[in-house]
């Protein structure tokens, strides 16, 4: 489905891990094809309100104007929004803790097992992609990945280069971490040029790892993905086809059971 403006077409998929509902999926995606802005985030399941944090990150990124906004410019206000959006006894507990008030009473409203996670904050990986004219700019923390394919060849891989580089403890953006910490020190930026016909694939870690394993074995995994996003099919049909394909990979144990998000973008 080619769109006006930059002439970008896109299709996005988001699925929970097997045995979970879509409202339990901790991945988030945001697409503004008109403005050429795309983002993915993968909330770390152990932190409370990680799905909310992932959603805030991607939505704010596509609203921004800079191709590569500086973390220090947009993270602090986003962290405040996370704090005000979480359940009120919990935000009151965190506010009292932050201001060193007597937190004893506030803390009575919080189950003990939520306290450490709330205090630490929510965490998510992040990948943002912006198109401007014939260039693209990408920003990443963690293991959500971008692949650029041109004329049947994979020409760019970002930020993880090898399937073996995935771990279950990726770098993360925190809702209560100093903005100059992780994103600044361990964020990656990349840019490149794009040509008509290029295809960009953005995906969260489980699918990205499968993708890299395929390429390392000499296959062209995008050839498996292409039919699923075939522009002729309706979005419903494409969603069903994608869900069935993912289910198949999981059942064959070729794909880790994790939330899966995929955004396909055609130039």
């Amino acid at each position: 489905m080619a769109l006006s403006g930059l002439g970008l077409g896109s299709r996005a998929f988001r699925l929970p891990r097997q045995g979970y509902n879509l409202d339990e999926c901790q991945d988030a995606l945001a697409v503004d094809a008109e403005r050429g802005r795309f983002a993915l985030a993968d909330g770390a399941a152990e932190s409370p309100y990680a799905a909310l944090w992932a959603k805030l990150l991607v939505e704010e990124f596509v609203r921004q104007d800079d191709p590569l906004p500086r973390w220090a410019n947009w993270l602090p206000s986003l962290q405040e929004r996370w704090l005000s959006a979480i359940c009120s006894p919990y935000s009151a507990f965190l506010s009292s803790r932050d201001s060193s008030e007597d937190g004893g009473q506030r803390s009575a409203d919080v189950p003990w097992y939520l306290e450490p996670g709330l205090t630490q904050g929510a965490f998510a990986t992040f990948l943002g992609l912006v198109f401007e004219d014939n260039s693209w700019y990408a920003l990443a923390v963690g293991d959500s990945c971008l692949f650029q394919v041109r004329r049947g060849e994979l020409i760019r891989t970002f930020p993880i280069l090898h399937a073996a580089d995935f771990s279950n403890a990726p770098w993360l953006v925190g809702s209560r971490t100093s903005p100059i910490e992780v994103p600044h020190k361990n964020g990656h930026q990349q840019y490149g040029e794009c040509q008509p016909g290029d295809r960009f694939w953005l995906m969260t870690d489980a699918l990205a790892q499968w993708f890299l394993l395929q390429t390392e074995a000499g296959s062209k995994p995008w050839l498996s993905l292409e039919p699923l996003i075939y522009p002729g099919s309706s979005d419903d049909e494409a969603q069903h086809a994608f869900a069935a394909w993912i289910e198949g990979l999981r059942n064959e144990r070729r794909l880790r059971n994790d939330d899966v998000t995929l955004v396909a973008i055609s130039q």
Binding site: A44, A169, L172
Partner: peptide, 11 residues
């Protein structure tokens, strides 16, 4: 059991 928030990766 899934993605861990590893303290070493927060700094």
């Amino acid at each position: 059991i899934g993605t861990r928030v590893d303290p070493k990766n927060l700094r």
